[in-house]
C-alpha cells in the first residue's frame, strides 16, 4: 500500500506524457502520380543544386536511354517551387520538361529515341532569374516495357 501512491503517480505521469500533443507536420503540396511516372531506370543527377541569381549553377546528369526522363529538383526557400522555368538553351538531342512536383520544381531531360552521347541545356527560373546549366551524358539502353516509378528524384 505504501508503494501504491507513488506507483499511481508514476502511471498518471506516464499517461500524461503519452497524451502530449505531437507537433503537426506542415501539409505538403500535392504530388500527382503522372509526375512521378516514366523516369529512367538509371538516372544519376546532381542533387541539391543551389540556385543563385548572381551566378549560373552547373549540374551534371548521367542516364541510360530507356525512354524515361532524368530530373534535377530545385526549389526556392521554404521549400517552394518556382513560379515558372524558361529553357534558355535547348538540348540538341532531347527535350526538357520543367514542372512543379510537390514543394519543388523538377527539371527533366528526356533524350531522343535511340540517342547516346553527350548533350547539354540551360534553364532560367522565375522569379529571380537564377540559371542552371546541365551537362548530360546519355548511355545506350532499351526502351522500357513499363515506365519506371521514380522515387526520391
Amino acid at each position: 500500500m505504501r508503494h501504491a501512491l507513488p506507483l499511481a503517480a508514476l502511471v498518471v505521469a506516464l499517461a500524461g506524457c503519452a497524451q502530449q500533443p505531437q507537433p503537426v507536420a506542415a501539409p505538403q503540396a500535392r504530388v500527382f502520380a503522372v509526375d512521378m511516372q516514366g523516369g529512367a531506370r538509371v538516372c544519376n543527377a546532381t542533387q541539391n543544386v543551389a540556385l543563385d541569381p548572381a551566378r549560373p549553377a552547373e549540374a551534371q546528369m548521367v542516364l541510360v536511354n530507356d525512354g524515361g526522363w532524368c530530373g534535377i529538383s530545385v526549389a526556392q526557400p521554404g521549400p517552394r517551387p518556382y513560379a515558372a522555368g524558361l529553357v534558355t538553351a535547348r538540348p540538341a538531342h532531347g527535350r526538357v520538361h520543367i514542372r512543379t512536383v510537390g514543394d519543388r520544381t523538377r527539371v527533366d531531360y528526356i533524350p531522343d529515341r535511340g540517342f547516346a552521347g553527350t548533350d547539354s541545356f540551360a534553364v532560367r527560373m522565375l522569379p529571380g532569374g537564377a540559371q542552371m546549366r546541365v551537362a548530360v551524358t546519355v548511355q545506350p539502353g532499351q526502351i522500357a516495357a513499363t515506365p519506371a516509378a521514380a522515387t526520391g528524384r
Binding site: A83, A84, L86, V87, R90, H97, R99, T100, R124, L126
Partner: peptide
Amino acid sequence: SALFAEVMSLSGGNDLPAYAAGKD
C-alpha cells in the same frame, strides 16, 4: 490548371517561347 498561374508569372510575350519549350 496550375499552368495559368505559371504563364501569367512571365514578364511578357518574349518569354512565351522559352516557357513553352520547357512544358513538353
